[in-house]
Design a protein around this nucleic acid. Structure first.
Lengths: 187, 187
DNA sequence: CTGTTGGTAGAACGTTCGTTCTCTCTGGTG
DNA sequence: CACCAGAGAGAACGAACGTTCTACCAACAG
């Protein structure tokens, strides 16, 4: 237990590799063998930690969910007041879309590949989107908006569009259009 | 050649079936056998008309492209003046998103499954989005906007979001948020 | 009448997929 | 020391994938 921080456990390597590959190349396009060889992990190890590929997909989305919630927690801690938080959220989304999530939204992409609404994958997608919407509505209410739900719905709309846009169109133009529209909305 | 209008040719059946299945269930999730059996067409017939599955995917997106362009032509013919056209476009997008394209945008979904930017599939996606952006910019300019490119970029953003939103969130709320935001933008 | 074209029917190809199995080795705990 | 959970190595499974092949049939044009 001394130097466990420097070396990644097989499970961590597996999840991190799956996270990258699923996002960058699409879920159905990436086979289990590919993940295993790139993570340097054997089949047995994977099936010991995850029930199957679908469970790995779910874990990948849950990891994305935790990461994004982390961004929000950081922004909340940094904000000087509720209105400043709204601005930080918009700026944070724009920064995320132009640096990390340049291949669209992992949840939207996953939903495109999993049409069954009852799928466990879709359940994670729904949960994340519900959290995001509620969090935005709460922040908008704190900032004194009389129509927090409307503001939240519009912001969700714009974030979806921004993430898709930086993937398929000119990132600079899209990021600017997003910030313009979103900032006028929240101020 | 007398009653060719009532009966669909095998090629037409094939393309229509592929179009529906690819959109509703995802491209990689739908196998060739599935399309063939549901279209009532044999393998030979398919490979006579299309080089392979990828060519069928391209044809599916080209069909979507033609359909959407048809909507625009119809709106252009119906509009009383350039400003009215802008309004008709927004209404048309909202109507399309809540009736036909309830599983997201076929081009965005396809791009999520084809990560290679050099893929023929991505070429069709890019071409469609370029046409859409240019058409919107032209319409905005006709309507007297001084910043047609900005308006077009924002409208593309909003349409992407609306199509995703009606798939993953409450269609009514999303359609309303879209129309609210888009109409204030174009007027 | 005779090709040729475009369709049906069905077997078969090689590959890849996700999954399961057996065997061995190592590191720590009882 | 004995034990066993966790990980590595690799074979093997059945199913599904996209694709190719052969054989037969109908319609139309020369």
């Amino acid at each position: 237990m001394v130097q466990t921080m420097t070396t990644e456990s097989p499970r961590e390597r597996l999840l991190r590799t799956a996270n990258e590959l699923f996002y960058r190349e699409g879920i159905n396009s990436v086979g289990v063998d590919r993940i295993l060889s790139e993570a340097g992990v054997t089949r047995q190890t994977m099936y010991r930690h995850f029930a199957g590929k679908e469970a790995l997909v779910v874990a990948h989305l849950e990891l994305e969910d935790r990461t994004i919630r982390g961004y929000f927690d950081a922004a909340s801690a940094q904000a000087s007041d509720p209105k400043d938080l709204m601005r930080l959220i918009v700026e944070g989304i724009a920064a995320d879309a132009t640096t990390y999530h340049t291949r669209g939204c992992p949840f939207i992409n996953a939903a495109a590949e999993f049409p069954d609404p009852e799928s466990p994958v879709r359940a994670v997608v729904d949960a994340h989107r519900a959290w995001f919407r509620d969090t935005l509505a709460h922040a908008a209410k704190q900032a004194g908006r009389r129509d927090p739900k409307r503001v939240a719905a519009a912001l969700v709309l714009l974030r979806d569009a921004a993430l898709v846009g930086v993937y398929l169109d000119d990132p600079k133009i899209v990021a600017r259009a997003f910030k313009d529209t979103a900032l006028t909305l929240v101020t």
